[in-house]
Simulated scan of single mutants.
Amino acid sequence: MFKSVLKKAAGAVAVAAGLAAMSAQAADVKVGFVYIGPPGDHGWTYQHDQGRLAVEKELGVETTFVENVPEGPDAERVINQLAATGHNLIFTTSFGYMNPTLKAAKRHKNVKFEHATGYKQAANVATYSGRFYEGRYVVGHIAGKMTKSNVLGYIASFPIPEVIRGINATIRGARAVNPDATIKVVWVSSWFDPGKESDAAKTLIDQGADVILQHTDSPAPVQVAEERGVWAVGQASDMHKFGEKAHLTAIIDDWAPYYIERTKAVMDGTWTGGGDTWGGFKTGMVVMADYNKAIPADVVELAESIRKGIIDGSVHPFAGPVVKQDGTVAVPAGETPDDGFLAGMNFYVEGVDGEMPQ
């Protein structure tokens, strides 16, 4: 009995000491975030900000964010300013921040940087992204089943591999269950512009699309879909409250576990740069939102079978054959492309209606 009490007391002391050490570490760490849009976009930036808030709540560290930072020289200025004002770890959360992040990292070698969706690393720069294309492949199956016109509409931001991969995954999913499905794309040259996104959704609906998808960050397309009586899929966050009838589901980006893990690594001295993390369904970085109750049960079952198949490795969105828009074979039947192929994707697959911007 006496020994048991001693053990419990020793354990309590150890826990208290651990908490005190964690508190001391937290006081020494300051984390910065650079956002392409506002946290209130209810999409991409909103989810990154939820991750930031989770870091504060879980670890007790001080965080800072700068919103609406354009990609280019302004981004470099903002990143340098965060680095110069005591931030030990800085997350830069848009593709166009890649080179500005690298430049800032050269100037501030004692600061640790994490760049979202990029592919260039350094000793003090790591990269991370989600396998959003996995969610888009699931959504493609749903869209292929739900469309009546056989025309899907896709609002795209910029013609980078991440976005092209999403378009291709969507139509491949759709045509797996509906060979007559096609997808029309409107490029808006912006990540967040509710006006442009709204106009693009209207244009696509006028062209016959009855399912609207997007790789842009505002809920405007979902709102237009609700008004016009067609289906929609949310981007990065659950957007159902902006169109409860229209919203089929959404591909949710859950950054919180990664942000907590990487901040902890800075706190305990185990953080390393130069690496890349590409998480998907299996790691929980990509999650499907609740399915609309209007989706038939067999379609939900199909969607879930695809999602689970991606997790267990029995399904790959780009398993061959992958046929380009011009009819040439990019991936032969029986083969599965590696991550390098996916990361450099710069072509449309069959089923995409229209030309890619140059």
Rank of each mutant, 00 (worst) to 15 (best):
I155K: 01
L248R: 07
K196W: 02
A122D: 12
R131M: 15
A181W: 01
T249G: 00
Q223F: 02
K196E: 00
D238E: 02
K202L: 14
N168V: 13
I164G: 07
S198N: 10
F113W: 04
A176H: 06
Y133M: 13
T170A: 14
R165G: 06
W191Y: 07
N150Q: 10
D206V: 07
P221R: 05
A256F: 00
P257R: 05
F113K: 06
P161I: 08
V151G: 03
G229L: 09
R131G: 08
I251P: 01
V151I: 15
L204P: 02
D253K: 05
D180M: 08
Y137Q: 06
P159C: 11
H215N: 12
I252V: 15
K245I: 09
K245C: 11
R165Y: 02
G130K: 11
K196M: 10
M146T: 04
I171G: 07
S198Y: 06
I205Y: 04
A256W: 05
E114A: 15
N178I: 12
S189K: 10
A123V: 13
M239A: 11
P257Q: 10
S218E: 04
L204V: 08
D199H: 11
P194H: 10
K202S: 15
G135A: 10
V222L: 07
Y154K: 04
D217K: 00
S237G: 03
T216R: 11
K120V: 14
Q235S: 14
Y133A: 04
G229M: 08
E162L: 11
E134T: 09
A116M: 06
T203G: 07
K148G: 03
S157W: 04
S129Q: 13
V233W: 01
A122M: 10
A220R: 03
E114V: 14
I183L: 13
I212W: 02
P219C: 11
L152N: 11
A176I: 08
A176N: 13
L248P: 00
K245N: 15
Y137G: 13
G208N: 05
Y137A: 14
A225R: 00
A250C: 02
I164K: 03
T117K: 00
T170F: 10
K148W: 08
V188A: 10
A181Q: 09
K245W: 08
L204T: 03
Y137P: 02
F132P: 00
I212P: 01
A225M: 00
V233Q: 05
I183T: 14
V230I: 13
R131A: 15
F132E: 14
P161S: 03
S149V: 11
H115F: 03
V151W: 03
K241I: 09
P179A: 10
K120E: 14
S157M: 10
A126T: 10
V211R: 07
P159K: 05
N124R: 04
E162V: 04
G195L: 13
T203C: 13
V139A: 15
P221G: 12
A200Q: 02
G234H: 01
Q223W: 01
F132N: 11
R136V: 06
A201F: 05
S198M: 13
